[in-house]
C-alpha cells in the first residue's frame, strides 16, 4: 500500500513541471488608437488576462471590454453601449499560437522575434489573424509586445455614415504584457 502511495506522490511530483511551463498575467496592457480625419481616439485597458504555454507555444488572451478607459467618459459610454455592445458581448478573446517556436529559446534570456497566428473574437465575431511581435525573456518573466490592426468591419462593428470622420475602420492595437510562471 505504502509503495503505491509513493508512486502516486511521484506522479504528482512529475506532473508539477508541466504546470511551471505555463506563464500568465492578469494586468496585461491593451491599447487602441483610432486615427480618423476629424478625431483621434485612444483607449487603454490595463487588466488583460493572458496565458502562454511555453511548451507548445499556445497562448490565450481575454480582455474585458468595459475595462477600456477613455479620455472622455461619454466616449467610453458610447463605445460600450453603441459599438461594442459590451453588456451582450463582455469580452474580447484571442486564441492562438507562436508559429516559429523552434527559433525561440524561452529558457534563455534574450529578445526574440515571434510570429503569432490564431483567432480573434471581438463583438462575438471570430476572425483569423496573424501578427508579429517580440518576446523578451528575463529570468522568470516573459514580456510580450505586439502591434497590429483590427478592422471594425471584420467584427460587425457598424460605424454610421455620419461618424466615419470620427471613428477609423482600421484600429491600431498595441499589447504589452509581462507574464510570470503559474504556480
Amino acid at each position: 500500500m505504502q509503495k503505491h502511495l509513493f508512486i502516486l506522490a511521484a506522479l504528482f511530483v512529475f506532473a508539477a513541471p508541466t504546470f511551471a511551463q505555463k506563464y500568465f498575467t492578469r494586468d496585461g496592457k491593451v491599447k487602441f488608437f483610432s486615427d480618423a480625419s476629424m478625431e483621434k481616439i485612444e483607449a487603454v485597458n490595463k487588466s488583460a488576462t493572458a496565458v502562454l504555454d511555453v511548451a507548445t507555444g499556445k497562448m490565450e488572451w481575454k480582455v474585458l471590454i468595459k475595462g477600456f478607459l477613455f479620455e472622455k467618459a461619454l466616449m467610453q459610454e458610447h463605445f460600450n453601449e453603441n459599438y461594442l455592445e459590451s453588456s451582450k458581448y463582455p469580452n474580447a478573446t484571442f486564441k492562438g499560437e507562436i508559429t516559429n517556436l523552434s527559433e525561440i529559446d524561452l529558457s534563455k534570456d534574450g529578445t526574440y522575434k515571434a510570429k503569432v497566428k490564431g483567432k480573434m473574437n471581438i463583438h462575438n465575431v471570430e476572425k483569423d489573424m496573424e501578427t508579429a511581435g517580440t518576446i523578451k525573456v528575463n529570468g522568470n518573466a516573459i514580456t510580450l509586445h505586439s502591434e497590429f490592426f483590427v478592422k471594425c468591419s471584420d467584427h460587425s462593428i457598424k460605424i454610421e455614415a455620419g461618424k466615419v470622420a470620427n471613428i477609423a475602420n482600421d484600429i491600431k492595437v498595441t499589447v504589452d504584457a509581462t507574464l510570470n510562471p503559474m504556480k
Binding site: K22, T49, V51, L52, K58, M59, E60, M182
Partner: peptide, 9 residues
Amino acid sequence: QNDDLLSLL
C-alpha cells in the same frame, strides 16, 4: 488544461 489555457486561471 492544454485545450483551454484561460480556464487554468
